Simulated assay, not measured.
Amino acid sequence: MNGLTGKTALVTGGSRGIGRAIAERLAREGALVGLTYRGDETAARETVATVEAAGGKAFAFRAPLGEPGDARALWEAFDRHADGVDIIVNNAGIAGPGLIDEVSEEDYDRVFAVNAKAPFFIVQQGLRRLRDGGRIVNISSGVTKVAFPQMVAYAAAKGALEVLSLTLAQTLGARGITVNAVSPGTIETDIHPWMADPELKAGAAKYSVFGRVGQPADVADVVAFLASDDARWVTGQNIDASGGSGLGL
């Protein structure tokens, strides 16, 4: 598979979980993938090694998000490895559990800084690097589709990201750039250690019509489609990648 040969992709938070699966999938399609990490350099190096072992091309660089000047620093680091970009995947994010009366101002600001503000300025400052006909994919969450009081700040931040996706699709259409969001459901990654409990995992599986929890590849395959030329006529959409979670509610 080489549908993305000659393309360059940026995947934020690409060293672990869903981001890693996306980076590996885009690389299998032939893209040169730049993936960011915050602190786990070992995981980032392992992801690059896996890509290269499969015949792909990737590079990793540290780019903490949620800090002043984060987008500028990210692109300065990216520019040392690549000349321009065709695909931007805003995947990096942090959880923000808590009912509204439990969320501190500091917690709220942190969740929005990483999940909403960082993607906004990554795109803003990436536009002069993003080639015409490019792709932007923003990873949202299924919690924006239902009332989920236990993660109110997180859900609100992801909702902002979805509106940004819709607005950018209109703004960038004249350049042939598509902008879409992808909303995963419960995905089995290392950020959900509770899934080691068989009962809890089985309970989560019941939300999907397929009777299982999602895997990172389930989301990565959707992103790969949106990044490809096959999705040239799809923009301004929020693709549900939750295995039909909540259809029976």
Results as ranks from 00 to 15, higher is better:
207 Y>E: 15
221 D>H: 12
219 V>G: 01
223 V>N: 03
212 R>S: 05
241 A>K: 05
234 V>F: 02
223 V>H: 07
217 A>T: 12
197 D>Q: 09
227 A>H: 00
238 N>F: 00
223 V>W: 05
214 G>S: 04
200 L>E: 11
201 K>D: 03
220 A>N: 06
205 A>N: 10
198 P>L: 10
204 A>F: 10
218 D>E: 08
234 V>W: 00
218 D>L: 08
231 A>C: 03
235 T>D: 07
215 Q>C: 00
228 S>I: 10
221 D>K: 12
212 R>F: 07
200 L>S: 11
207 Y>H: 14
234 V>I: 15
204 A>K: 13
216 P>H: 06
241 A>Y: 01
230 D>N: 09
213 V>A: 02
197 D>F: 10
211 G>I: 03
197 D>C: 10
214 G>C: 07
238 N>I: 14
210 F>N: 12
234 V>M: 04
208 S>H: 04
228 S>H: 04
226 L>C: 03
216 P>W: 06
210 F>A: 13
222 V>T: 13
241 A>G: 01
223 V>Y: 04
223 V>D: 01
200 L>Q: 15
236 G>Q: 02
219 V>T: 00
233 W>C: 05
201 K>Q: 13
219 V>E: 04
230 D>V: 12
236 G>V: 07
221 D>T: 12
212 R>Q: 10
200 L>D: 05
200 L>F: 11
212 R>P: 04
229 D>N: 12
221 D>Y: 10
235 T>V: 07
231 A>Q: 05
233 W>K: 03
218 D>A: 06
199 E>W: 02
229 D>H: 08
201 K>F: 05
236 G>K: 03
